[in-house]
């Protein structure tokens, strides 16, 4: 049967240089990341080049994605959250494009690697932490002190709140990674059933219809998951940024 993990392998394309004894290589993962950035840039530049009053397809996709992210941002943070718009929009478009590219057969899914999603989640976490400190000073730590808690259990609650705050980048990154990994493995396992069943002869070919139908349905589900996970990542980013702007529950 086809190896379901094979699709996640990283290959070196060429070497960029060395830091110490560690080789810094340009891999297939880097290539797909550049690809995702190129697709997003082409879409946005191509969509905004015409400036038609009545948008064509290209321009309306670009406008739709702009409207979508800005509405999400406005509804969860408010008008002052718009200064984070470039950051949130880049995150959303990058994750969405990387997820969607990954559904195409024979491609590599960048977001199915934990290191990529951890880097993105840590970027959000550090932005929230540093900007929160910069904006509110020590008032940022009101985040860990909920209202209306009796003084004698306050130290306990504070420790729990700090752990809860530190666990944010973990769950933020693992969620995206696990969804993409699990989805692609499931897809590959069911597709593998089709080939191994049809090798059994006439009865097998008849039976292979079932996993084939399952694979088709799962591909549709994966399309939904690809969008949904990009959206979930974005909305959680907005919620966390909201904490940086307005600490204190």
């Amino acid at each position: 049967m086809a190896d379901p993990i094979h699709q996640f392998e990283i290959h070196k394309i060429f070497t960029l240089g060395h830091i110490g004894n560690q080789e810094i290589a340009f891999t297939n993962s880097s290539a797909y990341m550049f690809g995702a950035v190129a697709v997003v840039s082409l879409l946005m530049l191509g969509g905004s080049a015409g400036r038609r009053l009545i948008p064509n397809r290209f321009q309306s996709v670009a406008e739709l994605s702009y409207e979508f992210v800005s509405n999400t941002l406005r509804s969860s943070i408010g008008e002052e959250g718009m200064k984070f718009f470039p950051f949130v929009f880049s995150l959303f478009m990058f994750i969405l494009t990387a997820n969607l590219i990954g559904i195409i057969p024979y491609t590599f899914t960048v977001t199915s690697h934990l290191i990529v999603t951890v880097a993105l989640a840590l970027m959000v976490f550090l932005t929230v932490f540093l900007y929160g400190l910069y904006k509110n000073g020590l008032g940022f730590f009101k985040l860990f002190v909920p209202h209306g808690i009796p003084i004698y259990i306050l130290p306990l609650i504070m420790v729990i709140e700090v752990i809860s705050f530190l666990s944010r980048p973990v769950s933020h990154s693992v969620r995206l990674f696990a969804n993409m990994l699990a989805g692609h493995i499931t897809l590959k396992v069911f597709a593998g059933f089709v080939t191994s069943l049809s090798a059994l002869g006439a009865v097998g070919i008849f039976g292979a219809v079932l996993p084939l139908a399952m694979t088709t349905a799962l591909t549709a589900l994966e399309l939904l998951v690809a969008f949904l996970q990009a959206y979930v990542f974005t909305i959680l980013t907005c919620i966390y940024l909201n904490d940086a702007l307005h600490p204190g529950h």
């Binding site: 666990s167 944010r168 973990v170 769950s171 969620r175």
Partner: peptide, 16 residues
């Protein structure tokens, strides 16, 4: 999706 979301929240807390 919901199951993974909630379970990752719980696991993240315990791991940290």
């Amino acid at each position: 999706a919901v199951g993974l979301r909630l379970s990752s929240e719980l696991v993240a807390g315990v791991v940290v």
